[in-house]
Amino acid sequence: MLLSSKLIALHQLRNISYLRSIAPQNIEEKTMLNELLFKFATWLDGFQSSTNLHEAIYAYGWVEGTHVLTLTLFLGMLLVIDLRLLGVAFKELPASTLVERLDKPMMVGFVIMLISGALLFYAIPVRSTQSIWFRVKVVFILAAGINALLIRNMTRASDMSWDNDPVPPKRIRVGAAMSLGLWILVVASGRNMAYDWWDCHKEMPHFMYWAAGCVNELAAFE
């Protein structure tokens, strides 16, 4: 029943030619990556422990609870650092003091988030891989990581003469604002993973099937 409604939906979409026109030119290459990711997710899904974790009444909730609660440590410390680099809080303290000394608790939080996040992915690998929100989240995390590296390089390259200034130079403030903005988007897209608006079984533009990596639905178009 579900499959037939899915196919009807796909058939309807196939007739809407303008949707196809917005698909990227190098779609074959991108689809190959989608297929690889799908294969990897299916392989993970085959493990009994993955199913067990997903179906465990409380274990999944504990892992998810840990993931959400650790946000307060990881992003809480990051917020403190970024607010100082923006020049809006902790202005009495040298920026380097906060950056260097809050790094450890922040990274402890990051490692816990990474482990609990990996477990959450492991519990529901196929749906997560085909979640547009998860994909967007990963992109934002990578962007936030690159941004963090750029900020570090900028501070290392400078003579830190601004260390005691209440308001750091503009390029540092821009970096801090970017960092906060990107992490806000990470949190928001992570939260939206719980919604099924753009799950593969939904009717949506062809582009979205590609972006979410719905390989079976895409194959039905061929």
Partner: peptide, 13 residues
């Protein structure tokens, strides 16, 4: 969630 991060982050600090 973001407000929780701000509130609890500052409290933890």
């Amino acid at each position: 969630i973001l407000s929780m991060i701000m509130l609890c982050g500052m409290i933890i600090l």
